[in-house]
Design a protein around this nucleic acid. Structure first.
Lengths: 215, 215
DNA sequence: ATCGACAATGAATCGAGATTCAGTAATCCC
DNA sequence: GGGATTACTGAATCTCGATTCATTGTCGAT
């Protein structure tokens, strides 16, 4: 029925997989269902992928390579670190907010096991963190960001906040525009939650927590 | 060999389950291995739990009820919202940082599927968010926290940051003291990452991001 | 129009492991 | 002591679905 393994078919399998993984969860997902939805025979899947796990991994690798690269390009549009963080945040939320099934796969299914998580962290997540980390460092150098906060901590707070926003959006059924949260989220990260006047918070509180918490 | 279904045996099964789930992952975990490690027969598991899934759910329900309650009590030790946030953060990081296997189960295994996640969010995570949210609200009322940031956003940033700190700690093999990050993390959340002088960040950046990001 | 090469098919295989349950043993109560 | 009750055991069962592979269909070349 065909001559050349079509990229098209491969893409259809991946698209079908996103839907099935998102709806059933990776383990409960049936290869047969992916095949059916992609309009190919069960066995065909194995001409394009080594197995079920390879589908998930490929999904992740291919989408991410593109994603991180775009984030890097987009942020070039502006110069200072704060603005760059805002663009990255927008990109992050817009990309996942555009496709709920894809977001489910990224927020939930790809975190199945420590095995995935590690592989994960080592490849794109690592690069993404490096990207954000370099912007933070730039900000500390140019003086727009506080230099007295560990870069890694800021990076994790940045990513962690975005990640939680996406997860909440995915789990809660409501569908608001995720990307609209980028502005407020970055504003919070930059300016902090403390009221302007309440300078007490800075020091006083630190001593309380550091000086022991209790049992 | 026994008369009364012992709580002790139930506890041993749960403890064994934490270790096996953490090391193998929920799906790859074998009920037989949990049984062996707990020192009971395979069938005994089914006297205490409905099945494999029920073990995971019970683990979560029981540990969490206790955990959230403790957080609530501990924070009473201080009055103002910023200090309370710091105690909650310490509690959160200390609890998970004390037992890596437990942390793996919470950060990774319990997020298997949207099914778990939803159940999850509905029960304890919901209550935890309510707890944090109420402290944020208190802070906005008492004037220690900015009132112009949506409470939910601050809550998600707070949780998201802690969550990411824990996940990084779990995935990276290094073992530093997780609880020590509570202070700096809350300080960052409260005071923000922007340098004191760089007031530009606040307004200028917002317009850039809001006024369109690019394709 | 015939052949060779390869893509695609999908029914059958095969392994794995959660769960069951018939049997065994401890404990209680008289 | 012994009968009743209930906890416990662990080998056998039973289901399920990923993967395989013998067969079929299509294409391009000659």
């Amino acid at each position: 029925m065909a001559r050349k393994r079509s990229d098209d078919k491969r893409r259809r399998i991946l698209q079908a997989a996103v839907k099935v993984f998102a709806r059933k969860g990776y383990f409960a997902a049936r290869v047969a269902e992916i095949a059916q939805r992609a309009g190919v025979a069960d066995g065909t899947i194995y001409l394009y992928f080594r197995g079920k796990e390879d589908i998930l991994v490929s999904l992740f690798d291919e989408l991410m390579a593109e994603h991180v690269e775009r984030a890097r390009q987009q942020m070039q549009a502006v110069e200072d670190a704060p603005s760059r963080l805002r663009l990255i945040a927008e990109h992050h939320l817009r990309a996942l907010g555009a496709d709920r099934d894809l977001a489910v796969v990224f927020q939930v299914e790809l975190r199945q096991s420590t095995k995935f998580m590690e592989r994960f962290t080592a490849s794109w997540l690592g690069r993404y963190f490096d990207l954000v980390g370099s912007v933070i460092e730039q900000g500390q150098r140019e003086g727009t960001l506080r230099a007295d906060v560990p870069r890694k901590l800021v990076t994790k707070a940045f990513f962690g906040t975005l990640d939680e926003l996406v997860t909440s959006w995915v789990i809660g059924r409501k569908d608001y525009d995720l990307a609209l949260l980028a502005g407020p989220a970055v504003d919070l990260l930059l300016r902090g939650a403390a009221a302007a006047g309440a300078s007490a918070s800075g020091r006083a509180v630190l001593s309380v927590a550091t000086g022991r918490g209790g049992r």
